[in-house]
């Protein structure tokens, strides 16, 4: 089966009020789909809904052909792993402890880790380049390191689908690239399907196979990045004028001061 997650005419929101509507998507094995849109356009809302943490306002989500709403948390967890933006601050947990929570769906009643679990945890730590942090207190490492530890946690859950909300947010440019490389490796070697929200247009163009743009409570169609993130499309999406766009991504040297930059 190639399609792991599919959504049909999904309307996502809180308390029955839609934040975004009209989402149709298919996450395929080995594919990377990116959600792009201004702040507040509903990226996180969609991700939470697809992860089964928020009931859809209308429409349906299928995970490996089964309705998401009919599956238990544990069944979902053995297929899908999520990495959200909200702050995690556990007390007195080492990075290894945090990562090992990812093995939860596989361990027994008391959560005892087997030798195999420990192996997977070690590999996940290495893959995310945080092995040397494993005994450090999770609360006493930098934001970027924390992000990579959370990535390791998601990896050791051995998901077929990985849902990530702005995982590159806190990272410097090198760690952004490293994180994306880790993801691409997972996609290539394990056929993981990745759904990711991010703000870096130029990285998305190179990284994603499919892009869905969100704007004014509407989800656009799934498109290849070259079409979805062309000059005109990006300008419309973020309310940029072409001057601003060219200054950001093009060759233009100076940004004229005549047009005030519009806030988001």
């Amino acid at each position: 089966m190639d399609v792991l997650v599919s959504a049909e005419d999904l309307c996502a929101g809180y308390d029955g009020k839609a934040v975004v509507s009209g989402l149709n998507l298919e996450l395929r094995r080995g594919g990377i789909t990116a959600l792009i849109g201004p702040n507040g356009s509903g990226k996180s809302t969609i991700l939470k809904t697809l992860a089964g943490q928020l009931p859809p306002v209308s429409g349906r989500v299928f995970l490996k052909g089964r309705g998401l709403g009919t599956m238990s948390e544990r069944e979902i967890a053995s297929v899908m792993s999520v990495m959200m933006t909200e702050r995690v601050d556990p007390e007195l947990m080492t990075c290894e402890d945090v990562v090992s929570v990812g093995r939860f769906p596989y361990t027994g009643f008391m959560g005892r880790l087997t030798a195999h679990d420990r192996d997977v945890i070690r590999q996940a730590l290495e893959t995310a380049h945080v092995f040397e942090l494993k005994d450090r207190d999770f609360n006493r490492i930098s934001d970027g390191q924390r992000q990579r530890v959370l990535l390791a946690r998601a990896i050791c859950q051995e998901p077929e689908v990985l849902i990530m909300d702005e995982p590159t947010g806190f990272l410097d440019i090198r760690h952004k690239l490293e994180l994306l490389q880790v993801l691409m490796k997972m996609v290539r070697e394990r056929g993981t399907a990745v759904l990711i929200s991010m703000h870096e247009i130029e990285l998305t163009r190179k990284f994603a196979d499919t892009v869905i743009c969100l704007k004014d409570g509407k989800a656009g169609p799934a498109m290849p990045p070259a079409d979805a993130l062309g000059r005109g499309a990006v300008c419309r999406l973020f309310d940029l004028d072409e001057d601003q766009y060219d200054w950001l991504y093009g060759e233009k040297q100076a940004l004229t001061g005549s047009d005030p930059v519009q806030g988001d």
């Binding site: 939470k48 992860a51 089964g52 943490q53 238990s72 948390e73 544990r74 069944e75 979902i76 967890a77 053995s78 899908m80 792993s81 999520v82 959200m84 909200e86 702050r87 995690v88 556990p90 007390e91 947990m93 402890d97 945090v98 929570v101 990812g102 939860f104 769906p105 361990t107 009643f109 008391m110 959560g111 946690r153 859950q157």
Partner: peptide, 19 residues
């Protein structure tokens, strides 16, 4: 076991399969 997962926050607890 669920307490450990819950210490990472509610969302993560759900994401690893805690009811």
């Amino acid at each position: 076991k669920p307490i450990t997962a819950y210490q990472l926050g509610e969302r993560y607890a759900v994401s690893v399969g805690v009811n």
